[in-house]
Nucleic acid binder design. Structure first.
Length: 342
DNA sequence: GATGCGTGGCT
DNA sequence: TAGCCAAGCAT
């Protein structure tokens, strides 16, 4: 805690240790929003998104009243899009059923969409100063090293959670949780931990055996297969672009994208509208969580009165590449310039 | 317990 | 260049 008082990271959603000890309470809405954004996502990627979201939707009621499409568009680029759908669901439950206030207990929070064991404990501890044990990837790493736990993840998770629980104090549990995560993020880092300046150096078992950098062990990962596909970018003579909203569930669910083939070993061509399609030279490469994708891109100019089988024409002035998921933005990056020469 | 689900930065 | 990794959740 002494180390945290002197070395806490300054983060837009955080009430720092000095203010916290002076009695300043964090806004549960901002704690919740930041924690959901930070699920499997780096602080650097979250900063700007958090700023935008809180600027547009300063509280849970305004977010609950938002249009789904605008929230998805603002989330674009952050990944794991089910988070955005659950975020909206959760905001609406809190605003409509809970009087605009978040539950203050781990159990109450756990019942909300998009809030699992980590996030429930984090909000309870950070926003409401409940003595909950917060175990994220940082804490897993710190604890595995501190106690020299050799069992690979995820099998070691229950044991690491138990050990982390031994460290959870009754005083300042919220700051303690954030201290553990800051330590993992800045000192006890995955590749080359800075053991020489670590406040826990003297009591760290892995430091003693020189194995800190090798922990925690992790189960082997499965190789990622390569999938192929085709994306179709049609521009109408008035400049409008043919886009479609993807199905709610599954990959990139609810996000805007270019119509295309399915993605697999040998995708079948399926143009969304009859036209003279031009196959572009380079392809788009993108890696998802569980596969590599190579996307061929085809472009076409179409008439004002054409009737596509799929998708909706979006007027040029309403089209913002930033509202597309990254793979679709990559498609636009090569299709856009090609269309100007068509 | 295993699988599906993004992305960008770093090594 | 390719793999690793990040404040995980839902099914």
């Amino acid at each position: 805690m002494d180390w945290y008082d002197g070395h806490a990271r300054g983060l837009p959603w955080r009430v720092g240790p000095a203010d916290r000890r002076a009695g300043v309470r964090p806004d549960p809405y901002r704690v919740w929003l930041s924690e959901v954004m930070l699920q499997q996502t780096t602080v650097a990627a979250v900063r700007e998104k958090f700023r935008r979201f809180t600027e547009i939707w300063p509280d849970v009621r305004s977010l609950a009243a938002a249009e789904d499409a605008q929230v998805m568009a603002e989330w674009a680029g952050l990944g794991y899009y089910a988070r955005a759908r659950n975020l909206l669901q959760c905001a609406r439950v809190v605003a409509n059923d809970l009087g605009g206030r978040f539950p203050e207990t781990r159990e109450g929070l756990l019942a909300l969409p998009g809030i699992g064991p980590y996030t429930a404990a984090a909000i309870a501890a950070i926003a409401f100063d409940r003595p909950e044990t917060v175990v994220d990837g940082n804490v897993e790493r710190v604890v595995a090293r501190l106690f020299d736990v050799d069992t690979p993840l995820p099998k070691a998770k229950p044991e690491l959670t138990r050990l982390a629980g031994l460290l959870t104090p009754q005083a300042r549990p919220g700051d303690h949780a954030q201290a553990m995560m800051d330590l993992g993020a800045t000192i006890c880092t995955p590749r080359s931990p800075a053991c020489g300046i670590c406040p826990l150096m003297a009591s760290c078992a892995a430091r003693a055996t020189g194995r800190a950098a090798d922990l925690p062990r992790k189960a082997e990962k499965k190789p990622k297969p390569v999938r192929l596909g085709i994306a179709y970018v049609a521009r109408r003579s008035d400049g409008a672009l043919l886009l479609e909203t993807r199905p709610e569930r599954g990959l990139l669910g609810g996000m805007l994208g270019w119509p295309g083939s399915d993605w697999g070993e040998s995708p079948e061509a399926a143009p969304p509208v009859a036209a003279e399609w031009t196959v572009l030279g380079g392809d788009v490469r993108h890696t998802f969580t569980h596969f590599h994708l190579r996307l061929a891109v085809e472009v076409a100019s179409v008439d004002l009165d054409c009737r596509p089988e799929r998708g909706t024409f979006v007027p040029a002035r309403d089209f913002r590449p930033s509202s597309l998921p990254t793979v679709m933005r990559k498609v636009w990056a090569i299709a856009g310039p090609a269309l100007t020469h068509l």
